[in-house]
């Protein structure tokens, strides 16, 4: 299990290669990469604030939950904070398991938790100003599917 919280850019391809090599006995690896996207034609960057200390603990806890629940052979979580320009990679999650279904579900579960329970807050930086991104009710609903 590897959890990284950093302001530095990272190379998702190299991270995925290293993760795959380290996941002994796995028959399936699934990865998700989140990228800063521009919905309005005006976005220049995201500025991501986080809660140092709680962020790391919370991601470790969530990664452990995913590993236990889906019997994963490995979990990788990388999440950046600070100023991240349009088109740059924000974060990635990778899961390894014996079979693909557990790997897919583990990654999906982790992403749903990351969206609504990890202490990150996105602010959009546009040419005309700045605005905090609002949490989506659909993200909260996605999380509730894992209850019970």
């Amino acid at each position: 299990m590897r959890v990284v919280v950093s302001c530095d850019p990272f190379a998702p391809g190299a991270e995925l290669d290293a993760f795959t090599k380290s996941a002994k006995g796995a028959g399936a690896v699934v990865s998700f990469t989140g990228i800063v996207r521009d919905d309005t034609g005006d976005l220049q960057a995201l500025d991501i604030e986080h809660y140092p200390g709680m962020t790391e603990t919370s991601l470790q806890h969530q990664a452990q939950s995913a590993q236990d629940r889906f019997g994963l052979a490995g979990v990788l979580v990388i999440h950046r904070y600070g100023l991240i320009p349009m088109g740059d990679t924000i974060m990635m999650v990778a899961t390894a398991a014996r079979h693909r279904k557990d790997a897919f579900q583990g990654a999906d579960f982790l992403m749903d938790y990351l969206k609504s329970r990890a202490p990150f807050w996105k602010k959009e930086i546009t040419r005309s100003g700045t605005a905090w991104v609002s949490a989506k009710e659909t993200d909260e609903a996605a999380l509730s599917q894992w209850d019970g």
Binding site: S116, R117, W132
Partner: peptide, 10 residues
């Protein structure tokens, strides 16, 4: 004790 808006990670 930390007080903040709903989180928007990922």
């Amino acid at each position: 004790i930390a007080i903040f808006p709903p989180m928007t990670g990922g």
